[in-house]
Design a protein around this nucleic acid. Structure first.
Lengths: 360, 360
DNA sequence: CTGAAAGCGCTAACAA
DNA sequence: TTGTTAGCGCTTTCAG
């Protein structure tokens, strides 16, 4: 290609062509449909037709266009397409932490549904920080994602009102939205926890510890509610020292477990509020001499291979994601109008740790 | 707002305003900067200035603009912005499977670096399918991501040449690119495997099995090479029946392990080529009567709590992702020019299973 | 300090 | 079957 800069014959000044005014390295100066059209000797719209597989193009013209595309390394600029069409064919997923083994399968399930609908997935981790959640959600909205799947960190989602009004499909997962009316898909945290506690009670336990997440997190609150309900059903008065809520980092959980276990009347069983808590409690119990029963919320890999196997209340993270994403696309179809709350059942999986008898 | 449709006085025909020709529900008819400008009684560019926090706007004007933004629920349309500016402030990540515990932390690490640079992360799973990898990568390029982090499934990436030429920053992770010259960040698979095998040999093993991934996957090939190197260093001739390569689904791995263990001269130790293989082998060994030593590539949660603890060659998935993402943004800076190959070291973590003596 | 005009690359509508 | 024109909503340039 000729790269010499043309010069005005009279003044000697450089004649800067229009394209030189483009921002430096704009898209790396990628070829556009116009360039392809020029090279193929056809009109712009014909290129558009070929690129989009529309009918009404002679095979010969089509071939010429394809050759030009190949030669120039053209790829359609979807930003322009989106600007015109108003649909991005992408959806956003905001979750707590992509590195958490609970969210991996959930995220993958959302991705699969998106893919089936020809959409890409943009995702972000809120790190359980409401401000970061909002920042992420709004960034996604600015990119005009067609829909949002949100595992909320915050409890006030009124900032989403303009988006909902504008027709951004939205489904909350794992925890409900705060102060707005929106679709939500969650596991039956209350029922699951109640079943788990009832299971421990059925095996003779009365002093049962509960170690959960921060109470502002909906699932944590619900699981605690399930704990209290099961205890009340069995007529067991709950000592508040059996309950520990807070961040689920290993240090805090370890301390909480050790306190419960070393109290004058120690707990004989522990209910762990989520997978991270369970894993930490397993470690603590491994170092503990007296056998202590354990039931955890969330299943996890290798739970069956530990000694004893860990009894859990399993929830299906992939089903959660799949259900949410499917609802999202039904909203986009227009099939779905009224926000609903969908609760998926949990399942008690007995593996040994939850069937240990109480030892004082 | 007046929503009556204006009518031509003379003919009685409806005068359809231009906006009515918008596609139905285009962005849900979201307000634009023009709408905000009209409402605030200012020019379009002033709104742009306020939205982008540029200087040179009277506090009073700014307040009026903010009020209009609030009242209308305006959010800037980044598609238009991108079209104009040529940068999307987003990067793409293509990996094998978001649900795999190895990729969760890697993905999260990439996200954190992206976030630090003000970019969003779009990701997709190739499901180890080269066609799907290409499809995803090109879709990301069409969206004009500023850069790509790719864990390749295929071994021919010449389709990326136009993108590289156009200045799309690209870093391969975990496995090198095929047939193009590109940055790559990987773990020392060869050295890690060699160390692991040497460790088993040092503990007296001679008949050592190797169960790995499909040989077309670079890491699998490298780990096998490490196995052969260690065996050769020790002067142990390798029986081909000790080696099994292929998809890492539990059924195949189980069959492979059982065959090695039930042969006339069975292996006394197994080297597992990745985390999924390791977990399956652990299950097989748990059902096996004779103790068999095990070293796995990749660390995994709870490896220390199994009986015996599982000795592994650990690689740092987060470091892999972080390093790759940092290189990506250095490419975008212009700091980095020449493609390099960066190899991160692995670490042998002894926990018991790799120190079991051979039992015939 | 503010605004009008041009145009990013594409698609929709219409014309030939 | 093909091409022309007019924007999508924003940023850039340049003139008030």
């Amino acid at each position: 290609m000729d790269r010499r800069i043309p010069v005005d014959d009279r003044t000697g000044q450089r004649i800067v062509p229009d394209t030189a005014r483009r921002p430096e390295n704009r898209y790396g100066n990628r070829p556009t449909m116009k360039d392809v059209a020029a090279r193929a000797g056809v009109g712009l719209k014909t290129v558009s037709r070929v690129v989009n597989g529309e009918s009404g193009v002679t095979p010969d013209t089509e071939r010429r266009v394809h050759e030009a595309i190949e030669a120039l390394g053209f790829r359609r600029n979807d930003s322009a397409r989106v600007l015109r069409k108003g649909r991005t064919a992408s959806i956003g997923l905001v979750l707590e932490d992509l590195a958490d083994p609970f969210y991996g399968p959930l995220s993958r399930a959302v991705e699969e549904v998106a893919r089936a609908h020809g959409a890409l997935l943009i995702n972000g981790s809120s790190a359980e920080d409401p401000d970061r959640e909002q920042e992420l959600v709004l960034a996604l909205c600015a990119r005009r994602v067609d829909g949002l799947v949100v595992i909320p960190a915050g409890d006030d989602h009124r900032y989403l009102e303009p988006e909902l009004k504008a027709g951004v499909a939205t489904v909350f997962v794992d925890r409900p939205a705060g102060r707005i009316d929106a679709d939500v898909v969650l596991s039956d945290s209350f029922g699951g926890a109640r079943d788990g506690i009832a299971h421990l009670i059925a095996h003779g336990h009365r002093r049962i510890g509960f170690i959960g997440d921060m109470p502002r997190i909906h699932t944590a609150a619900e699981r605690l509610r399930g704990y209290r309900a099961a205890m009340e059903d069995a007529g067991i008065p709950v000592e508040e020292s059996w309950i520990s809520l807070g961040v689920t980092d290993p240090e805090r959980v370890r301390r909480a477990a050790e306190e419960m276990l070393s109290a004058p009347a120690p707990v004989t069983a522990i209910f762990a509020g989520n997978n991270r808590v369970t894993v930490t409690v397993v470690r603590v119990l491994a170092e503990h001499d007296r056998p202590v029963a354990l039931v955890g919320f969330d299943d996890f890999e290798l739970a069956d291979l530990l000694k004893p196997g860990v009894t859990v209340i399993a929830q299906d993270a992939a089903a959660l994601g799949r259900t949410a994403a499917e609802r999202l696309f039904r909203q986009l179809d227009g099939t779905l109008i009224t926000p609903e709350r969908i609760e998926l059942p949990t399942r008690l999986i007995t593996r040994g740790s939850g069937e240990l008898p109480p030892v004082d």
